[in-house]
């Protein structure tokens, strides 16, 4: 599968990343390579393999309930495009949240 520059620009826009011309070309090539590599998995016959959510033989990975220092607020807000009163500022959303 070939990733074209429009796709890279679209992904960069979604991820709020600013890419240079060279980066766009380099990432288009790299992303194409990665997807092509992953596509090889499609060739495998998986009919007899049950679906799984995780390939790691892990369970019950838990941490103790103890609080650690959080990020300083200016660092937490450093990447946002718009902020006010120490909060992220977004376009008004009419619909209410989920649950």
């Amino acid at each position: 599968m070939k990733v074209d520059r429009q796709t890279v620009e679209h992904i960069a826009e979604l991820a709020k990343l600013q890419l240079s011309e060279t980066e766009i070309e380099r990432f288009a090539e790299q992303l194409s390579d990665i997807l092509n590599y992953a596509e090889r998995l499609q060739e495998l016959d998986t009919d007899a393999i049950p679906p799984t959510a995780s390939v790691l033989p892990l369970s019950n990975v838990l941490r103790a309930d103890s609080a650690q220092p959080s990020l300083p607020r200016d660092e937490a807000l450093a990447n946002t495009a718009d902020q006010a009163e120490g909060q992220f500022r977004v376009e008004a959303v009419l619909d209410d949240s989920s649950d």
Binding site: Q87, F88, R89, E91, A92
Partner: peptide, 8 residues
């Protein structure tokens, strides 16, 4: 108004 503030 036309914006919302987000506290996480």
């Amino acid at each position: 108004g036309d914006h919302s503030l987000v506290d996480l």
